[in-house]
Computed example of a mutant assay.
Amino acid sequence: MATITVVGIGADGWDGLSLSAQLELGGAEVIIGSGRQLALLPASDALAVPWPSPMLPAVEPLLAEHRGKRVCVLASGDPMMFGIGGTLVRLLGAAAVRVVPHPSSVSLACARLGWPVEEVEVVSLVGRPVESLLAQPNRRLLVLSAGAATPGEVAELLSTRGYGPTPMVVFEELGGAGERRHDGTAATWSARVGGLNVIALDCLLAPGVSPLGRTPGLPDDAFDHDGQLTKREVRAVTLAALAPLPGQLLWDVGAGSGSVAIEWMRTHPSCGAVAVESRAERAEAILRNAQLLSVPALTVVHGRAPAALSTLPRPDAIFVGGGVSGDGVLAACWEALRAGGRLVANAVTLESESVLTRWQAGVGGALTRIEVSRAAPIGGFTGWKPMMPVTQWEVVKT
């Protein structure tokens, strides 16, 4: 297979390219890139092909059309930093892609700010909703913007979530002749910026606002729910049993408010989840909770298990919080679970507890009894109010 060369280019255009990058482009028969990127190159005999919109569906057909020719693909900055380089490697394999990198906007922004790159979290909002931005106190974020409107959207989101005092720096045309810097805070942001920009955030929480961490066990009132909620203490134990790992997919069956699926996804940006819920009003609440708690990519399926499970992607872990005693629910979950995957099921009734006991006797795993009491007023005094005990079954599929 012919090798595709991916050349990173900055806002400084041709003059900012290394000699090796210029030689690659000079020897190309076909150069593919955005209109803005192609305009940065001098005239040549190469065929200039702009990406259509949307771009991703066109990648394979365009490459096939020019198979056998010397093809260069342009990328903004470092092609392997949220760029087309990663897409091409996934499609063609690493051996078929040669990358000539350029300083990324992340490297340039950190250089301007004096921020060590390894201490900064990078978030891309290109093709992603602004609600996926998860701010936490005293953390530095670099946000790859989707366009001119993104800084204002980020400022509004931060202010709504209690991070109004956060200092914001927006760089336009980083590395180019038109580079500009705008400074402000989320609460007072009003700058007008161009479409090519990067946002730097030094996250600062407003006084009196309690932060929400990534560690499982968010307060119950962080969720919109009708009482169908895995309570905070039990939820923390449940997530520990599920043991989320980066890149893994969870099914949350009988999701209620979606609290377990949401907390699973908050543990790492690459974690995915599908929340299955039979009641429409609860499914709608799950969507609201996912937006508010920075995981809008959560997939919500309105349907009843086991029928609703048949077309879902195969999971790495499954939590059954509702419908344990439903006909065929656990059997369908067990059949779908990958080898090495974890299944955790919680029961609060005698009927569902007996189902878990039978399954544990059949395929193994551990049964745990979880009992929690919370302090509550008793007249003029305070006493312990017990919550309903939960029986939890945890098993790894071999």
Rank of each mutant, 00 (worst) to 15 (best):
E156Y: 08
G256T: 05
A200T: 13
G162Q: 01
V193E: 04
A255S: 13
L174C: 08
A146N: 13
T160V: 09
K231L: 05
A206M: 12
L204R: 15
G247L: 08
V193I: 02
C203D: 05
A191L: 01
G147T: 07
Q248G: 11
L229M: 08
T185W: 06
G184S: 02
E233R: 02
G213L: 10
D202I: 07
S190E: 12
Q228K: 13
P211E: 04
A222P: 11
L249M: 03
S210L: 12
L201M: 12
G162F: 01
L229F: 15
G217D: 05
A191P: 00
P219M: 13
A243W: 00
P211L: 05
I262G: 02
S145L: 04
G194M: 02
D224V: 14
L245G: 10
E263M: 09
V170R: 09
S190L: 02
L201A: 13
P165V: 00
L218Q: 09
C203Q: 13
V169E: 04
D224Q: 14
T215P: 01
E263I: 05
K231T: 06
A222H: 07
A177E: 15
G208N: 09
A240F: 02
A261K: 01
G194W: 02
G147N: 08
I199D: 10
A222T: 09
W251K: 10
P246L: 04
A146Y: 08
C203T: 14
V154E: 02
S210A: 14
C203K: 12
V154H: 05
I262P: 01
G164V: 03
